[in-house]
Write a protein that binds this DNA or RNA. Structure first.
Ligand SMILES: [Mn+2]
Ligand SMILES: [Mn+2]
Ligand SMILES: [Mn+2]
Ligand SMILES: [Mn+2]
Lengths: 219, 219
DNA sequence: TTAAATTTTTAGGTTAATCTAAAAATTATT
DNA sequence: AATAATTTTTAGATTAACCTAAAAATTTAA
């Protein structure tokens, strides 16, 4: 069945919200991520339910059907593969690629996606450490922790970020916090939960709890 | 000013028609290439004129303004660069790339286009021999002849095609008629204007006038 | 140079996606 | 349990892009 960019974006947003909870997703939550009004969301949910991509009962919230999940994962796959392409092949920085990938994720050609995947060497994660679903829509399981949950004196490795915003990514770059960086947690300050940490064995610096919450690490 | 995919496609079609003539372009001609109705074209031409991208007076036909020309050329540039990418980097055949490029040509990022151009080695032509406008929108001048206009016993080189259709391109591939092929015209048959030609010094074969008309060569 | 044929435009509708404002349902609070 | 607050849906419009049918303008032919 034909699908519009807008419908794809709704499915993607419902998918994203569903990753964080097992509850049904509220109209308002979708509206906020879609940057639209609840009334528009209601219209669209009816339409997506008619097409069989979501299960929706009014006032009860929405969740993806098996088919909707498959579509959402294929868009996520495209988004993340294109981000790898933009960074690895086109030389963009990790804070510059999200908006372009938002466009590229809607390009429709299975052949192209699979050739791109191969060309990039079948990457498991995108430039932000997010897992890339394979051809069958299976997401590799990556059990990462938030840096903010790690105890003092531990050593860990920066594996990803929990946020794609350009300002956040640019800050990390400025602090030398890149994917793969080795982090030695020297001390956690009780007062503001800021972390005194050495990055790749350099002289330790302070990073805020707010930043640490958005950094994903492997111990 | 914001531009929709549809508007971009109209500008591209008007541009294509304008290459073949210095006359104003008729509503019907646009309708045919856009695969839509004349009434819809009239609506859109009024809109494009309001935006300053075409000069249009009712019943008098349409032509691109300087700004419209610039937009059209930037879309052509993107289309052809992506086609090069698909063939050179993704390993597609020349008959498989047009439809995908129709989608990719609407991706909006000057940075990406210019990085792609560089990554591809600043190609002058696409996989069909069509010239690629540079960053400033200047088309390299390629003075090619139609194979159907070459006299017998001449030797020439296949530089491009005058048609992108998959069936035509697949036929050329089957006949070993690829870009850069050396063509020795042995004889032209007066009856059906078919051509007896040797391709890359192989045993000569017959090709129809219809095919020859759509092959571009350099002597 | 009038009449016929063709092209193009206008008139009036449709569909997808959005909006605001008001009504209805659900959830939270006394 | 009743009321208040919040969330969600419905009602009614708007805009972009398209359609068919009819009217108007232009071009061609008699
Ligand atoms: Mn992204
Ligand atoms: Mn990402
Ligand atoms: Mn093409
Ligand atoms: Mn081409």
């Amino acid at each position: 069945m034909a699908i519009s960019f807008t419908e794809e974006n709704y499915l993607k947003v419902i998918h994203r919200l569903s990753e964080a909870t097992s509850e049904d997703i509220s109209t308002n939550a979708v509206a906020e991520l879609m940057q639209t009004k609840a009334a528009s969301v209601t219209d669209m949910l009816r339409k997506l339910a008619d097409k069989g991509w979501v299960n929706y009962q009014k006032y009860q919230g929405v969740r993806l059907s098996a088919e909707g999940e498959k579509i959402a994962l294929s868009i996520v796959r495209k988004h993340r593969l294109w981000e790898v392409f933009l960074v690895d092949k086109m030389g963009f920085n990790w804070d510059e690629v999200h908006e372009i990938a938002e466009q590229l994720e809607h390009i429709e050609s299975d052949q192209l996606v699979n050739k791109l995947d191969e060309y990039l060497g079948f990457p498991k994660t995108d430039p932000h450490g997010d897992p890339i679903p394979n051809k069958e829509g299976v997401l590799p399981e990556l059990a990462y922790s938030h840096l903010s949950d790690i105890k003092a004196t531990k050593t860990c490795k920066l594996m990803g970020v929990a946020q794609d915003s350009a300002v956040f990514l640019q800050l990390l770059t400025k602090l030398n916090l890149n994917l793969g960086a080795k982090l030695d947690i020297k001390e956690i300050n009780e007062f503001d939960r800021s972390i005194f940490v050495s990055i790749n064995d350099a002289a330790p610096i302070f990073i805020s709890h707010e930043v640490a919450k958005n950094i994903l690490v492997k111990i």
